[in-house]
C-alpha cells in the first residue's frame, strides 16, 4: 500500500467527521479547519523542511513560563520508551518540535525516516493528547483561551 501524502491524510479526517469546515490553501501547504474545542486550527506542511506544524495552536502562553515548560515536558514524554508502542512517537523516525513566538505555541513533527502519513497521524494524536493534558492540568486556561466551561 502506498503511503498517503499530508493533504491526503488530512482529507481522511474530513471524511470521518473529525474536522469541520476544512479549507486547504491552493498550494496544499496550509490547511484551515475546525477541530478540538470547535476551534479553527491551521496545519502547515513544509516539504523542504519535512515538517508538519499546528501553527499557533496553543495561544497566550508566555515563553519560559511554567505552563510553557510543562507543555514542552509533556511533549518530550510522548517519545519515551515507557509509553505503549502505539502511542509513542518513535524518535528514530520523527522529531517532535515546539515553538513559542510572541506567546503563541506551535507544535509540529519533523520527518526523519518516517512517512508523511505516519507523521501526520502521529501529530494528530499528539495534538489531541496535548489538549487532554491542558483540560486536565490547566482548566482555567482552557476557559480563558478556548471557551471551555469552567464548571
Amino acid at each position: 500500500m502506498i503511503a498517503m501524502t499530508v493533504p491526503e491524510v488530512l482529507q481522511t479526517y474530513v471524511q470521518r467527521g473529525v474536522f469541520q469546515d476544512f479549507r486547504p490553501a491552493a498550494d496544499k501547504k496550509m490547511f484551515d479547519f475546525v477541530w478540538l474545542n470547535y476551534q479553527r486550527m491551521r496545519v502547515q506542511w513544509q516539504p523542504a523542511q519535512q515538517t508538519i506544524y499546528f501553527r499557533d495552536v496553543i495561544p497566550n502562553v508566555a515563553a519560559r513560563s511554567k505552563m510553557d515548560q510543562e507543555i514542552r515536558a509533556f511533549l518530550r514524554g510522548r517519545t519515551t520508551a515507557d509509553l505503549p508502542e502505539h502511542r509513542r512517537v518513535d524518535p528514530d523516525a520523527f522529531d517532535l518540535v515546539c515553538e513559542n513566538r510572541k506567546s503563541q505555541m506551535s507544535v509540529g513533527i519533523r520527518l526523519k525516516t518516517g512517512t508523511e502519513e505516519e507523521g501526520t497521524r502521529q501529530l494528530m494524536a499528539v495534538m489531541h493528547e496535548t489538549f487532554i493534558f491542558l483540560h486536565q492540568r490547566w482548566p482555567e486556561y482552557m476557559y480563558e483561551s478556548f471557551g471551555s466551561p469552567l464548571e
Binding site: N37, R121, M124, A125, E129, F131
Partner: peptide, 25 residues
C-alpha cells in the same frame, strides 16, 4: 487515547469531537 474501537452503549448525551479522550483514529 489508545482505544482503536469505541462501542458507545446508551450514550444518549453525546459528546462532540475531542470531548472524549479517544483519539482521532
Amino acid at each position: 487515547p489508545s482505544a482503536d474501537l469505541v462501542i458507545l452503549v446508551g450514550q444518549y448525551c453525546m459528546p462532540s469531537a475531542g470531548e472524549y479522550a479517544f483519539g482521532p483514529e
